[in-house]
Amino acid sequence: MNRNFWIIALIAFINSLSFTILIPIIYLYGKRFGLSDFQTSLLFSIYSIAQFFATPVIGKLSDRFGRKPLLIISLAGTVIANLLAGTATTAIVLFLARFLDGITGGNASVAQAMISDVTSPENRAQGFGIFGAGLSLGFVLGPATSLLAQQISLGAAFLVSSTVALVALLITIFFVPEPLQTRAEKAHNIFDLGLGNLIRGLFMPKVGVLLIINFFIGTTFTIFTYAFQPYFLNVLGQNNRSLTTMFLLFGVLGAIMQTWGVSILKRKFSVVNILFLALFIRSLSFVLMPVLPIVIYFVAVSILFSLFNSLVQPAINTLISLNAKPQDQGTAMGLNASYLSIANGVGPVIAGMLIHQSNPQTYGYPLYLAGILTFLVLFLAIFTRQRYIPKVV
């Protein structure tokens, strides 16, 4: 891996850190403004919906004008949005800040396209594995950083997030060269900014089926992520400190697997088979988690889950990258991130409909559902594999 790759991976880690600092405090921060539970949930959905529409536009523009300018714009949006949120005095400003962060939130997809630009097809799986490890490390350090910032105030977490994003912005401006060698042709229609690709992308040869598969993968995973915390706290009777330790465990194991694990498995298995294996273990883990309401048992299953779950997105990203044309890398990655964004809004709603506080047994229902649906996604991936297996795997 060359110098440019490691700089881009560093930016991806910093960006992930900026994002995950906010995860523990958005709900509480919304309550500070007197928002109801439903109104507070809109703080999550407005970000995901805005990102769903904006990400393919940013990806398309990055194919046309280069990765660096769009990454700069995207990071600058995060800096400004979180600064506004951290100093907001009204709920309207807070909602506007979340919308701005979402509408400029193509950081990850542009960074993924840059990874594709600076790695060879043979090294791309390892490259996306390291990229994913950086994201996992951000998911470990982000909540810990947030906890420290909250000692000052909830708004301080947004300001710290803004500062972290500013560091990534400065690194991009001064140290990242433009990696895109072949740019897409200029559009004949100036309004052709990629929104139509949300539909057309589904029909892209080899890429479209992967976008569909990854949308369902994302939906089943967010069903789990919503259900995991109330199950751990309410059914297993654990506290916030234990929950933080679990996130730390997930992040550390994920980072290890995405760096060394990917390279080891790649010697024996193709990327497609790694995806199948990871999906099988993920679905099996979801089904097994709520079988016994015992902490040690749950932790053991969670360790198995975290090791193989960390392989899913690097494998999917690699397959999309290998199947997309060089001039369409940004568009393909943007579409992928966009459909994952909408999945982030669908999964928690499904899980929330199954849970009833008056009946603790229902906390396990979303986990069973996530496991069953992931099995179905695995069957879909196997059944359609001839449509997306690349020449280099």
Rank of each mutant, 00 (worst) to 15 (best):
A300G: 06
T78Y: 14
W6S: 14
K206A: 15
S263V: 00
I7K: 09
Q51R: 08
G364T: 05
V262K: 01
A187W: 03
A113E: 06
F128D: 00
G194H: 07
A227N: 07
S338N: 07
I115M: 03
L376W: 08
D101G: 13
E122N: 04
P24H: 11
V299E: 11
F232C: 02
L100R: 03
A168F: 11
A149K: 02
F44E: 06
I303V: 15
N214F: 15
S161L: 15
F13S: 14
I73H: 03
R183H: 10
S36E: 07
S116Y: 00
G218W: 14
L243G: 03
I281H: 02
A88G: 13
T20W: 09
Y27W: 09
K266G: 07
I199G: 06
F38V: 12
I14P: 05
V291A: 08
G218I: 11
L141Y: 06
F221A: 03
P69K: 04
G77I: 10
Y27C: 00
A9S: 14
T119R: 10
L236G: 13
Q329M: 13
Q327I: 01
V392H: 05
R3K: 15
F191H: 03
L279Q: 03
S109W: 05
S283Q: 04
Y29P: 00
P290M: 10
